[in-house]
Design a protein around this nucleic acid. Sequence first.
RNA 1: GCCCCCGUAGCUCAACUGGAUAGAGCAUCGGAUUUCUAAUCCGAGGGUUGGGGGUUCGAGUCCCUCCGGGGGCGCCA
Length: 569
Amino acid sequence: MLRFETPHGTVVPEETKGLKFGHLTTNLAFKLARKLGRKPPELASEIASAIEKDSRVERVQVAGGFVNIFLKKEFLREYLLSLHGKLPEPGWEEERPPIAFDNREGKHNLEFVSANPTGPLNVVNARAAAIGDSLVRIGRFLGYRSDAEYYVNDEGTQIEMLGWAILWRLGYIPEEELPEDAYRGDYVKDIAEAIRDRIPRFEKPDSSIAYTIGKMGSDYILQTQMETLKRFRVRYDRITRESFVRESKYPEEALKNLSDKGLLYFESKDGKRKPFDEFTGLGEPLKKLLDRDFYLKHFEGFALYLETTRFGDDKDRVIIRSNGLPTYFFWDIAYHFYKVERGYDYIVDFLGPDHHGYIGRLRAALSALGFDVSHFHMEIVQQTNLLREGKRVRMSKRKGQLYTMDELLDEVGVDAARFFFLMRSPSAHLDFDMTLASRIGKENPVYYVQYVHARVQSIKEHAAGQGISWSIEDLNLDMTDTDYEREMVRKLLYLEMYLNKAYEKFEPHHLVFYLMELADTFHSFYQNIRVVDPQEPGRTAARIALLEVLRKVIGTGLNLIGVKAPDRM
RNA sequence: GCCCCCGUAGCUCAACUGGAUAGAGCAUCGGAUUUCUAAUCCGAGGGUUGGGGGUUCGAGUCCCUCCGGGGGCGCCA
């Protein structure tokens, strides 16, 4: 990042709104004015005169409290060459990016999608996949150790419900006997068929048979989900199963941590309380609480509560139900404990819109465990509506009429799907216009950006055909000084700023907007300036060199959001 | 009832920890190609940032209030 030292501290300048404001700007004077009790213009001129002495700077301009910085051509050339050297050749969009910037401090965990293994992935899952995967790419590229994680809820009632649904589809039970919460969607037929031959023998279907079959079904579903995600160019570094967490030492550790702090108590539905000491008095290890028979024997009718209200929650939460079964919430606490223990200094969860109310209690539980919640970030990936010909596509879950992620990819393709998901901030409701996304042409922003890459490649080919040779060293800003080109140079300075912004805010759309702006600049340039001119080989070479930097920036940006940068369109 | 999010151009959305003239895309209208790809470009119209009040050098952004929309409030996950 570009920085400047001044008597008022280090300035990390920002982008400008146009070349008339210079290449970079800072409003530091405004910010300091109140604190120091001085006038912004005075401070600005002090900051300006310090920056002016910097060898990279051509001149500065003070406007009110703004200090606008104009950089020297020699420095700009050096910067662009170094940028070019750092960026990989496009074409790695299926893989993890190389580290291009500094090797930064920080090991981060980003968990996203984590859909229940009871059905196909849907459109919100796809959106979360695009967001999470792109951020992991950007994080790695910036030099952080960013890991993508998938959590599988392969235990619990839902698994049994899946099992019942499969039993029904295979004809073992009539529809009337199907539990109310069982999955009735048509997709269960395919799953049933896929595992039919491996179903164990049994006398009469019961809960435990349903559970076993549900497990088989969910394994199969997980596998198909992973295939879909792979098709979407999403990679995971780790898949964690809830069954693994349950068997690990973390549930017990969490109980120990919370009981040591006196945050647990028993309460019955009619409000009778028992202190946690009633358990402690039994002299049994904490693990016993997770043994259902043991729990029922001693605490039947009572649930085990965690005092999350002491940490800002609206009410205390149940972690073991009075039927002896721990809640999802409890296993999730153990899971987060496990993530922390793995040594991440930043943990991010992307949750679906229906988990909105869950954030508060999870944060409260994490504080209860003694973790610094500023190291956790929970982001809601908002709802997505599909539009076709301007009309809502119904995605009702009932009767299995759901529109799946695979269908979306069939209809609009991976590039358009990823790009469209990333055009909006994750927290905004998204209207996904499939008619627009599947159109080929200027109205479709994904082609608009990809076309830049293809056009530059085409120019290079044309130049070669004219016998013009060039190299990146031919970059010469004296020969590329039309307004178009100077504007291009200015915007090329901002790549790293936008990557940082996108990553720090967990909002990849900032990168997408940057790419669209760069593409804009290029297309205007292309329309008005002829690049290849055999009469002026020097200028031609200089222009191609500049476009080559642009091409790599666009190509890298696209690959970081998992979109291809084609050589030809 | 309580809590959270949102309200910006006809539509869908941006706007860096409060900063310069609130920007894009789509849609609408008018132009441009004997050319390195027209999958492009140039131009036009379109806004009291839901209303009102406050904080300050400065508010779409922060505070209060009202209106309107969505979501959450389970011993489900």
